[in-house]
């Protein structure tokens, strides 16, 4: 079995930029704040009128859908989103 090297993934800033780009592709014009709470853990706040009229789950699905590929597989770059806030303004 291959040894797993802790923190061998890309630096947090790079992952954050990746997350930002993916969310922007899905929700153009969104205002996005992302912080890292430890390796692989992130807190995300997205503000966009696109959330208006959607349930909280529906809002979060918009964001999760955009970054799903970053969270898939056995050793994903985004291990967990500890907090996801979706605001309309």
């Amino acid at each position: 079995m291959a040894l797993q090297i802790i923190n061998a993934g890309p630096p947090a800033e790079e992952i954050i930029e990746g997350i930002r780009k993916c969310i922007l592709d899905a929700i153009p014009g969104a205002e996005i704040e992302i912080s890292s709470g430890g390796p692989g853990h992130f807190e995300i706040r997205v503000t966009s009128p696109a959330f208006a009229g959607k349930s909280r789950v529906g809002q979060q699905q918009l964001v999760y859908g955009a970054i799903a590929h970053l969270m898939a597989g056995n050793n994903p770059v985004v291990h967990a989103v500890d907090r996801l806030e979706c605001l309309t303004e």
Binding site: V57, Q61, Y64, G65, I67, A68, M71, A72, A80
Partner: peptide
């Protein structure tokens, strides 16, 4: 893997009621 993409939701567990994703 499929349910995560299906629901646009990255974590397990996931609850469906009457065919609708609850959370």
């Amino acid at each position: 893997d499929g349910i995560k993409a299906f629901s646009s939701w990255p974590t397990i567990p996931q609850l469906y009621v009457k065919g609708e994703f609850v959370g």
